[in-house]
Simulated scan of single mutants.
Amino acid sequence: MLSIQSTEQLTGARISGDFWDLDQLINAIYKVTGDENKYYDYQGARQRILGICYNLRHAAQGDHQLEFVSNGLTKSVLTQHEIIFPNKNVYYATEVLWPELIFTAIALNDFIRLHQELIDSSEWNIYIATIRKFQASVAECLEQELGDDEYLVFLRMLHTKTPLTFRYATQYVDILNLEYIGLNSEERKAHLAAFALRLMLEDDEYVTLKSQLMEAAITTKKALHEIQINANYPEEILW
């Protein structure tokens, strides 16, 4: 079963599951976000989401962390069936910074809406159900870190039908990631809700950044999401 838990320093969340849990989520995301020629005005958000998939794929290949989780087998069951079998399963895990993970959960709403409008409107779409479960796990984990009122505000924003990542300047996620990394664990606890809201509301800092990026895009004739900013992540992150 897919699991999402905050890391010890509240730097981010640890996503873990067995190979098939991660593989199912990755495939669902690829299916719903479509190929690179779809939803051009959401390409920045799509690339951000696929960055998470990249980490999950490497986790499923054993490149990150391994966890050993009880599978419920008891000695009596093993005796009854006369088999020798381990009582723990291998889970694969990777960490994601909280601003990045919150943005991913929000952005997936837009792709679910697009998929339902343009591809498959069925209420029983298994790919959407898989993504909804992932979003619910993110929200459940976040609920443990936020106050009740803060969490309700986050849920209202998450439930909005208004596109939140249309032509979004995803470079802002890097800015928030780096700012968040620079906080200590107490400050992260105190300000995590504010970071979530900053991802969902276009504040003055975001508007200024996007304006600068738009000017650069016009000058270089590049897409908005292709404009590079100075975002130097530390080589090691204390999770």
Rank of each mutant, 00 (worst) to 15 (best):
Q5L: 12
Q5D: 07
Q5G: 02
Q5S: 11
T11R: 14
T11L: 14
A13E: 01
G17C: 14
L22G: 06
L22E: 02
A28V: 10
D35H: 11
A45L: 04
R46G: 06
I49A: 10
L56K: 03
R57H: 13
H58M: 11
D63S: 09
L66W: 01
F68A: 04
V69S: 03
N71W: 12
T74K: 04
T79V: 05
F85N: 01
Y92P: 00
A93M: 03
P99L: 01
E100C: 01
I102F: 09
F103H: 07
T104D: 09
T104W: 02
A107Y: 03
Q116V: 02
E117Y: 02
E117W: 03
S121H: 08
W124D: 13
Y127G: 01
S137N: 12
V138D: 09
E140P: 00
E145Y: 11
L146Q: 01
D148E: 15
E150C: 03
F154R: 02
F154V: 14
L155E: 07
L158W: 13
L158V: 01
H159Y: 12
K161P: 00
Q171Y: 08
N177K: 11
L183H: 07
N184F: 10
N184Q: 08
E186N: 13
E187M: 15
R198N: 11
L199C: 11
E202A: 15
D203W: 01
D204W: 06
Y206E: 03
Q212R: 12
A216T: 00
A217T: 01
I218M: 14
K222N: 13
A223Y: 11
L224Q: 07
Q228S: 11
Q228N: 05
A231F: 15
Y233M: 09
P234I: 06
E236I: 09
E236Q: 14
W239Q: 08
